[in-house]
């Protein structure tokens, strides 16, 4: 238990060991640990960012979905309106056409009736003329009577 130079030797050894530890052991270990800490930190930040981006994208997608739904509804409504307009137009056109055809038919019918009446008049006057002819035979100038009769038929 004598105090001697051992003490000095131990002091020198302690100093050397500490110096070596400070120079060659502590820095690389702490550097690696810090590096890992940084990596974990940045990883967590990236994960957080990814999560928020995901949430944002979801929100955006929802928005777009809503928008397109609105658009679709609008388009459908427009189409419905247009279709009803077209139906309306077609109805109008059809009724106009029908009126037109009706009017045309009326005119035709009238013309036909007129013609038939004229024909009938002609035929009746012809028949009368024949009867008169056959009754009066030679006593009558066919040509003079014919003129008289056509003048008569025109006044009818």
């Amino acid at each position: 238990m004598n105090i001697n130079l051992t003490m000095i030797g131990q002091l020198i050894m302690f100093t050397m060991f500490t110096w070596f530890c400070m120079k060659f052991i502590w820095p690389p270990i702490v550097a690696a640990m810090d590096e890992r800490k940084k990596r974990i930190e940045s990883g967590l930040i990236a994960a957080e960012r990814g999560l928020s981006e995901h949430r944002e994208a979801q929100q955006k997608a929802q928005e777009m979905l809503n928008q397109s739904k609105d658009q679709a509804a609008e388009i459908i409504a427009n189409a419905g309106r247009q279709a009803s307009i077209m139906v309306e137009d077609a109805k109008d056109a059809a009724s106009q056409e029908a009126d037109r055809i009706k009017a045309h038919a009326q005119v035709e019918i009238e013309q036909e009736a007129n013609r038939a009446r004229n024909d009938l008049k002609d035929q009746v006057s012809g028949l009368v003329m024949q009867g008169v002819n056959s009754v009066l035979a030679k006593e009558v100038d066919a040509k003079a009577h014919q003129d008289m009769l056509s003048k008569l038929s025109q006044t009818l």
């Binding site: 004598n2 105090i3 001697n4 130079l5 051992t6 030797g9 131990q10 050894m13 060991f17 070596f20 530890c21 052991i25």
Partner: peptide, 23 residues
Amino acid sequence: DMGFMAFHLDTLGVSFVLGALFL
């Protein structure tokens, strides 16, 4: 009797070996 001018070889040796092992 050697007084201050002496070394404990066992103390120095063992502690050096252990310190070196650690390092």
